[in-house]
């Protein structure tokens, strides 16, 4: 039933969807530092948008490796579009995609609900925090400030890359376009026998 590995169709669809998000990622940059001066890490609430390619692509195509590929592709798209953050987006994209992928793998690529996607968003958040720890000395912030920073990022990630990504894909399912993408399931075969 399910073929091993990604076929060209899967890769191309993932990359195309991811590059769309790559443009969103690029546009998100100016928005992020426009919100920043409002103070007290409000900007962290919208950070989660940078995790959304992985979760949306996984929900759409439902195959192993798609989340990682999507996040890397989206980061590359952002990078090639001339991101203000330059090189670091490639590293962030890779690590964020990897942790999201690991969450999906932990459920053996069998669950496609809000909870799993939100958990993947949490995974990506942890990945970004680990890099921030090395790059941004975030451990040197005052503790109340650091708590606010981390808390806001987790909340934003779950809302945007978890819940919102899920509802986006649900809406896409209504258009029927997702039937083109997903591997045939056991139910599909069962329905033929009826």
């Amino acid at each position: 039933m399910q073929t091993k590995g990604l076929k060209l169709t899967d890769v191309l669809t993932t990359v195309v969807v991811a590059i769309v998000f790559g443009i969103v990622y690029k546009v998100w940059g100016p928005l992020y530092y426009a919100v920043k001066p409002l103070g007290l890490h409000l900007d962290q609430l919208i950070y989660g948008m940078w995790f959304i390619a992985a979760t949306v692509a996984y929900l759409l195509i439902r195959k192993p490796g798609v989340a990682l590929l999507a996040e890397v592709a989206a980061a590359s798209g952002e990078f090639l579009a001339g991101s203000e953050w330059g090189l670091e987006v490639l590293f962030y994209g890779f690590v964020q995609g990897l942790l999201a992928e690991l969450v999906f793998a932990a459920f053996r690529y069998k669950r496609f609900d809000v909870a799993v996607v939100s958990l993947a968003a949490v995974g990506s958040t942890i990945a970004s925090l680990v890099l921030d720890f090395y790059k941004g000395y975030i451990d040197q912030l005052a503790w109340w400030n650091l708590t606010l920073f981390i808390g806001a990022r987790f909340v934003g990630a779950i809302i945007i890359a978890g819940v919102f990504a899920y509802s986006l894909v649900k809406a896409l399912e209504a258009t029927g376009v997702t039937q083109l993408l997903r591997p045939t399931t056991k139910e599909d075969y069962d329905s033929l026998d009826k």
Binding site: T9, T13, V20, L168, V177, T178, L180, L181
Partner: peptide
Amino acid sequence: KRYAIPLLSQSIRRAQRIAVAMEAKAFT
């Protein structure tokens, strides 16, 4: 969503068509 749904669904359809053509031309 109002913007994303039409853009994404069209992109996916287009990607599918292109992928079929690319597979036929042995890009894989």
